[in-house]
Write a protein that binds this DNA or RNA. Sequence first.
DNA 1: AAACATCGGTCTGTAATTTAGACCGATGTT
DNA 2: AACATCGGTCTAAATTACAGACCGATGTTT
Lengths: 122, 122
Amino acid sequence: MNKSPDSCPVTLCMEEIGSKWKPILLFKVSQGINRFSILLKSIEGINKQMLSKQLKELERSQILERKTFAEIPPRVEYSITAKGKSLMPVVQAMKKWGQNPAEKPTVKKPESKGDQQLPLFG
Amino acid sequence: MNKSPDSCPVTLCMEEIGSKWKPILLFKVSQGINRFSILLKSIEGINKQMLSKQLKELERSQILERKTFAEIPPRVEYSITAKGKSLMPVVQAMKKWGQNPAEKPTVKKPESKGDQQLPLFG
DNA sequence: AAACATCGGTCTGTAATTTAGACCGATGTT
DNA sequence: AACATCGGTCTAAATTACAGACCGATGTTT
């Protein structure tokens, strides 16, 4: 119904980390995997152009910080900023889901009472 | 380091809802916005082809369910499945962040003790 | 000494994805 | 008679992602 840019909080968050690679990057860097070539090796399916682009965007939006070392061959290290840390609960929720994805019906409580579910999420 | 497909839980989760639109769709449908044209109007920037594609993918991966009503004009309603519900913590974390994005330094506790932060995230 | 590897990327051309806009059929509204 | 609604599809054009070559300075291997 409303189309104002900041009306949907999920959209706001997606504008920061809503891409195929950003949450994974945030996760990897939070684990200490913080150099270009190591990230490239440890993230399946990404290539250097995409990694470069995503890192630049994350740096630009102040989620990651880039530090270069004047060595040969050059070394670059990425780290998570305060803003990046504030986004970690999202990444952690993803991690938690991924550690126990909803494949099997999760046989816990039979729920009884005709599968009522109305209130759901607010 | 490891490139096996299921080694990274965040990647696993991203394979389900890792696209520009899926978390927003999940959020909207969870709010009761569950018809094609209404979703189209309430999500800024999406078009009908993309909406159609994302809904199909979400249906295919059993995150959303599609129910058609033989009326004229036709009516279609989408709802969240059990698997979709299991993904809601991620969407909720996004919502929470979006409601209080890390723009200002969040002046809460001064943290003291030289901003120690080593253990960070596991 | 010559070749190759490392590091963090960039450049180019092609392949894949996304987009805008028209269109659909049955009915209700102006 | 013309237009709107509903939930989409089709086509062609624009945008984005990809693979592979390349860079410069040095270290390592042959």
